[in-house]
Design a protein around this nucleic acid. Structure first.
Length: 575
RNA sequence: GCGCCCGUAGCUCAGCGGAUAGAGCAGGGGACUUCUAAUCCCAAGGCCGCAGGUUCGAAUCCUGCCGGGCGCACCA
């Protein structure tokens, strides 16, 4: 059952009070250091009414409904309305959330289909830290959308097509002897890529043969296609292994590579051309935009079909977009991709709108994230050997976590230690990636990413574990009956108010496609719980207070567990 | 040249028009016979890049600068 937040109920009350007084008013309710909530909207309303704001505020206070929610309401400062809520109402809200297996979180996404494109590694290449952001952010958004009742179609748009395959396959044909390296870890393909690349760059005759191999691949030459398929399969097995290690819900079923759209590309070009959206320029089929120009002042087009008749990724993205709208019935399209692709997506979305493939009712959003920079402030290179392999980063994170875990829990060994180290290490990496505004660039810093103190994943895991510990020690563990007649201490009150904001926060996360808001919320909640933990004994409390505090622990634990789960971060019962 | 993103404490970052701008890290001082000290408390640390404008009120919105990153025709 959906439980509206106290903030939203109170907002309704204030708006109603204002209407009974004089005018419409957006309450603009927010948490405050001076009261439980403050309503700022009176100030703006007073201006349009050309009236004294404090007087208007006083009338709002007078007209507030007497429904037991508000304990005190006073006018403060230039015309703020400061509101304290009644303990009884707070406890009743606690009881409602504790009593619901979804913690009162609604399903505003029910009936909405979102197609979300994320991760996008390239066949025959290592996954690196850049893929981490897309994968982790995309996974978190998927989880939140699904939790809010939405239908989500995951799309891993892998780079499985292009000229580099000619080079790889041709090299294999000419060097049938086994390439060194373990097939399960991408070592073999990485070596193959390096060798083929080196010869391609230095041996023009080989480069020509590689290009002819590309033509053979495009012409569906059986042996060439078979060789391509082997490479794709080997890479895909590797990706799946990485996703498992990351604890990310991406599977083979979600993988639809660029090659899947090959058959649709000619029709894409034809329709654009027939509709007058695309025109031929310099032999290439192009879509132009009034406001997009290059350094020379000439317009910069989206190139749908190259002069040589081949298709680039613009055509592929358009075909994928159309398929997602028409066949998958997407109500919303998300692309979790590096911010450097901003112009590309603008052009693709604009083209799709013009072509009529993207109805005005379907938003298409480039969920951009900042570039991962090296210590020198330059982006990581993908070709030269400087890239940090994602698996190495994960291994290091888990190894470091294992050291800390083992030091804190000498009794923990073997598989149990490995499990705990994985939970803590992966949690640290994901939290570091999710906790900040995704649009900023950031310098890759393993020290910071793997830190296990302060505002980190482990802090939240720790807070969760302490809650669980209390609940486990409570002999009457099941008795979390809320007594609404009790009085609340400040720390209890603050905790209820924070807990109550969970559902609203999830809605914000979806609205802005910003998982970092959930991180910020959970961190605040964990801090508020810690204050409660330090000030309010639970197990030693007596009378109604004990049940209430156990209920607070229960709801805090469930909220932390659910919230962290939505970020893809594990929540062990013990740390 | 044009476009997008970003300038907040020594460092890394929150803050989506509201009262005295907040965290973490680093550095200083304290707190474990207590439900987990992977924690907490105290002190210190700020022309919110600069200058105008809008507003009762601006770190937040607008304009112009300065500084940094990225992107701009057949790679993806």
């Amino acid at each position: 059952m959906t439980v509206p937040s106290l903030a939203s109920s109170l907002s309704d009350s204030v708006a109603a009070a204002a209407r009974r007084g004089m005018a419409d008013l957006a309450p603009q309710l927010r948490r405050s250091a001076h009261a439980d909530f403050q309503a700022d909207g009176v100030l703006a309303a007073a201006r349009t009414l050309r009236r004294n704001p404090r007087q208007v505020a006083a009338e709002v206070v007078d007209h507030l409904p007497e429904d037991g929610l508000v304990a005190t309401a006073v006018v403060a400062g230039p015309g703020f309305v400061n509101i304290e809520l009644a303990d009884r109402a707070l406890l009743a809200q606690l009881a409602r959330r504790v009593g619901d297996d979804r913690l009162g979180v609604g399903t505003p996404e029910a009936g909405v289909t979102t197609v979300i494109d994320y991760s996008q590694p390239n066949i025959a290449k290592e996954m690196h830290v850049g893929h981490l952001r897309s994968t982790v952010i995309g996974d978190a958004l998927v989880r939140v959308l699904e939790h809010l009742g939405g239908t989500v179609v995951r799309r891993n748009h892998i780079g499985d097509w292009g000229t580099q395959f000619g080079m790889l396959i041709q090299y294999q044909v000419e060097h049938p002897e086994p390439v060194p390296g373990d097939t399960g870890t991408m070592g073999r393909l990485a070596t193959l890529y390096r060798l083929a690349r080196a010869q391609f760059d230095t041996d023009s005759a080989f480069a020509d043969r590689a290009r002819r191999r590309v033509v053979a691949l495009q012409a569906s030459d059986p042996s060439t296609v078979a060789a391509w398929q082997d490479i794709v399969d080997e890479s895909t097995r590797y990706f799946t292994d990485v996703y498992d290690r990351l604890g990310v819900r991406l599977t083979d079923a979600d993988t639809v590579g660029e090659s899947a759209y090959n058959a649709a590309l000619p029709a894409i070009a034809d329709e654009l051309e027939r509709g007058g959206v695309a025109v031929t320029s310099d032999g290439a089929l192009c879509v132009f935009f009034d406001d997009l120009r290059g350094p020379d002042g000439e317009p910069t087009p989206l190139i749908v079909r190259k002069r040589d008749g081949g298709f680039g990724y613009a055509a592929t993205d358009l075909a994928a977009l159309r398929q997602r709208v028409v066949e998958l019935h997407a109500d919303r399209l998300l692309y979790v991709v590096d911010a450097r692709q901003a112009r590309h997506f603008r052009m693709v979305f604009d083209t799709a709108r013009r072509a009529g493939w993207l109805p005005p009712t379907v938003p298409a959003v480039h969920v951009a994230f900042g570039t991962v920079l090296g210590p020198d402030g330059r982006p990581f290179k993908t070709r030269a050997g400087d890239t940090v392999r994602l698996v190495d980063l994960l291994t290091e994170a888990v190894d470091r976590a294992r050291e800390v875990v083992a030091a804190k829990n000498p009794g923990l060994t073997g598989a149990a230690l490995d499990e705990r180290a994985w939970q803590v290490g992966i949690g640290a990496v994901k939290y570091a990636d999710l906790a900040t505004n995704r649009t900023r660039d950031y310098v890759y810093d393993p020290e910071r990413m793997l830190a296990l103190a302060g505002n980190t994943g482990v802090y939240l895991q720790y807070a969760h574990a302490r809650v669980r510990s209390i609940l486990a020690r409570a002999a009457d563990g099941g008795d979390i009956t809320v007594d609404v007649t009790a009085t609340l201490e400040p720390a209890e009150k603050a905790l209820i108010l924070d807990l109550d904001a969970f559902a609203d926060t999830l809605v914000e996360v979806v609205a802005g496609h910003e998982p970092h808001r959930l991180c910020g919320y959970l961190y605040r909640l964990a801090q508020t719980f810690t204050t409660f933990y330090e000030h309010c004994p639970v197990l030693r409390a007596t009378g109604p207070r004990r049940g209430n505090r156990l209920a607070l622990c229960h709801l805090t634990g469930e909220t932390l567990r659910t919230g962290l789960h939505l970020l893809g971060i594990p929540t062990p019962d013990h740390l």
